[in-house]
Simulated assay, not measured.
Amino acid sequence: MNSPRSVLVTGGNRGIGRAIAEAFIAEGDNVAVTTRSGGAPEGALELKADVTDAAALEAAFKAAEEAHGPIEILIANAGITADTLLLRMSDEDWDSVIATNLTGSFRLARRAAKGMMRQRKGRIIFISSVVGLLGSPGQVNYAASKSGLVGMARSLARELGPRNITANVVAPGYVDTDMTSVLSDEQKEGIRSQIPLGRYADPAEVAGAVLWLASPSAAYVTGAVIPVDGGLGMGH
């Protein structure tokens, strides 16, 4: 049994984030989870924090470090949507999604990298989306924020690689979560018909890819975008 690692997952109270947190807990790791509304999985250290609030984020990092030691694995997963067509999209629709999905992830990576640089090891994993590379009508803000994570990860991979820190992206497709449950049956069927595997993902399948990127087996993988999308985004 390897010694437990210090893991931080943002947005870890539901959906993909929760599945990721549960997967690391099952591995025996020490997992801290940030959430805006509470409800972290059993066995996780729950930290109330919004990734757009720099002071709350710093407090969350300190609490996680006090409990589990310096963060060794960061999963930047917290994300929101504010979908609408371009001509109806307000500045607020744009700003809120970029602030959470992109700027929040930047702040997390910058803070986590401090400890990782000192330890000369670390794994940074951004949760993007098939939409970031494939595009999606009504999601100009969301797609921009999620594709931005790819550029960020690849820059970090080059910058932090000499310190034995990897930075990678997991790009899920459509997953059975609260975020997709709001779609109508007609919308769901339309999406499903475009997915070569003909089904939505289970959140645990996304967690599996994250777990692998954090494992010793993936020590030589950095700057990669790993799609977990049933083949929806091939070539994009």
Rank of each mutant, 00 (worst) to 15 (best):
I124V: 07
A63D: 06
A112K: 11
V97L: 06
K114H: 04
A67E: 13
G69S: 03
G104S: 02
A67P: 06
L87C: 04
R88F: 12
A60S: 08
R120H: 15
A78S: 14
R107G: 06
A59T: 05
T81Y: 03
A67C: 04
A112D: 14
A99L: 12
I75W: 07
R123K: 14
S90D: 09
I75E: 05
S136Y: 09
E65G: 12
Q119R: 13
I75P: 07
I127C: 06
A78K: 02
A64R: 04
G122K: 01
I124L: 03
A82D: 13
S105P: 06
D83Y: 08
R118E: 15
L102W: 03
E58C: 00
A63K: 13
A78I: 08
T100N: 14
A99Y: 11
A109L: 03
L86F: 10
T103G: 07
G79C: 12
D91G: 10
P137A: 00
L87R: 08
A112P: 13
T81C: 07
V131E: 09
D95T: 13
K121M: 03
A113C: 09
K114W: 02
I73P: 15
A63G: 04
K62R: 15
A76N: 11
T103V: 14
S129C: 04
K114G: 00
L86A: 05
I98E: 02
E65K: 10
L86Y: 04
E65T: 14
D93M: 09
M89L: 06
R120K: 15
L133E: 12
I73E: 14
G104H: 07
A59E: 07
M117W: 03
A76D: 10
R111L: 14
E58T: 13
S105D: 07
I124A: 02
I80K: 00
R88I: 05
M89Y: 00
I127Q: 06
F106E: 09
P70Y: 02
T81I: 14
T81E: 15
L133H: 04
D91E: 15
E65S: 12
M116D: 01
S96R: 15
E65I: 13
R118Q: 14
V131L: 06
A60M: 06
A78V: 07
E66Q: 11
A82E: 11
F61T: 00
N77K: 01
L134P: 00
E58N: 08
R120I: 03
G135D: 09
I75K: 02
I71V: 15
K121S: 10
W94P: 12
S96Q: 15
Q119D: 13
A109F: 04
A82N: 13
K62D: 15
Q119G: 05
A112S: 14
L108T: 04
F106C: 07
G135W: 05
I127D: 08
V130T: 08
G104N: 05
